[in-house]
Simulated assay, not measured.
Amino acid sequence: MSRPHTFTPPPCARAHRLRTTRGEFAVLDVVPPGVTHGTALLLPGYMGSKEDFVTLLEPLGAAGYRIVAVDGRGQYETGGTDREEIYAQYELARDVLAQASALRAGEEGGDGDGGAVHLVGHSLGGQIARAAVLLDASPFRSLTLMSSGPAQVTEAQQVKVKLLADALATMTMADVWEALRAFDPPDEMVPNGEALRRRWLCHRPAQLIATGRQLATEPDRVAELAATALPVHVLSGERDDTWPVPLLDEMARRLGAHRTRIEGAEHSPNTDRPERTASALASFWDGLRTAAHP
């Protein structure tokens, strides 16, 4: 679970609901004060939310990019149902395409890439983002896979996901939260403990069960992604217990992707080292813009 250092968005961010052909999605939206160089759509990971990107919003906005961080279907402040089938990866990927379409329809001027969206997915969000690109790459200018690997998570993580799914099938969300806390540091050492609990209680159990199953069974689709020719950025910390860093290095090589390791970060560089992560994202996007408009 990502642990954002704050759940409070900066003053430049607007919380609202993005209307799409697939329904409404809760977002945090930052529009730069000057010329907009492009728009980025940020997808959170398993058990995460748009708040995982809060500390990236201000520096990325200052770099000239509109940033929209979203709660996916059944995550935190975006509604869902108790039917697991609506959280199939194909359905979540279609949600992302609808979000990108809504953002492109609202583009106004700027010196970006004709409204094409830079897509960023953290962990599970990266695999959903990849699925969206494989359905239709045309709405996107680039894809950043942040701490998101080529296929299923490690065996140890598969065991954890299975245990959680079993618990969710028989226990309330509140009871599962208390059980999860047994593995945490003492309350006084966990920042935003109450906010994390509130976020957990708002997640749909069916979403966690369905997406957890996806993490444990995801096939290797790297060759398919490479065939799209979309510019890809593989970004991670220098340590990762969900997908080993050498595996991410190899995935980047197979994709011919830009590769960034964030020093001092682990599975969530967006919260571990937000300034360095924001700088790496903006640098990648700037490079694409410079190449397109030398």
Rank of each mutant, 00 (worst) to 15 (best):
E51A: 11
T36R: 15
G34I: 10
E24P: 05
G23E: 10
T39D: 14
S49E: 09
V30R: 07
H37N: 10
D52V: 08
V35A: 15
V35P: 13
F25L: 13
L57M: 11
L56R: 02
G64Q: 05
L60N: 03
M47V: 15
L56Y: 03
M47I: 14
G64D: 04
L56F: 08
G23W: 13
G61P: 05
G64E: 02
L43I: 15
Y46F: 15
P32N: 04
E51I: 02
G45M: 11
L41R: 01
D29F: 07
F25T: 03
P44F: 02
L60E: 07
P59S: 14
G61R: 05
A40L: 15
G34T: 10
P44H: 12
E58Q: 12
A40C: 15
V30T: 09
V27D: 10
G34W: 14
S49I: 03
P44I: 06
V35K: 14
L28M: 12
L41V: 00
G48S: 14
E51L: 09
T36V: 13
L41G: 01
H37S: 12
T39C: 11
G48N: 02
G38Y: 07
F53H: 03
G34P: 04
G38F: 11
G45K: 05
A62L: 08
V27Y: 13
V54D: 04
L41N: 02
T36Q: 14
V30N: 02
K50P: 05
G61L: 12
A63C: 08
F53L: 04
A26I: 04
G23F: 08
V30L: 11
V27M: 14
F53C: 01
H37W: 11
V30F: 10
S49V: 01
L28S: 11
K50S: 13
A63Y: 06
A63S: 13
V35L: 15
P44W: 08
D29M: 10
P44G: 04
P44V: 05
G61A: 09
M47F: 14
P59H: 14
F53D: 00
L28D: 11
E51S: 06
G48H: 08
G38D: 09
L43Q: 05
T39G: 07
L41T: 00
L28Q: 10
V31P: 02
D29P: 06
A63I: 00
P32M: 09
T39V: 13
S49D: 07
P44T: 07
E24K: 12
L42A: 01
V30A: 06
T55S: 14
L56N: 03
Y46L: 12
E24G: 11
L42P: 00
V30Q: 05
V35H: 13
A62S: 03
T55Y: 02
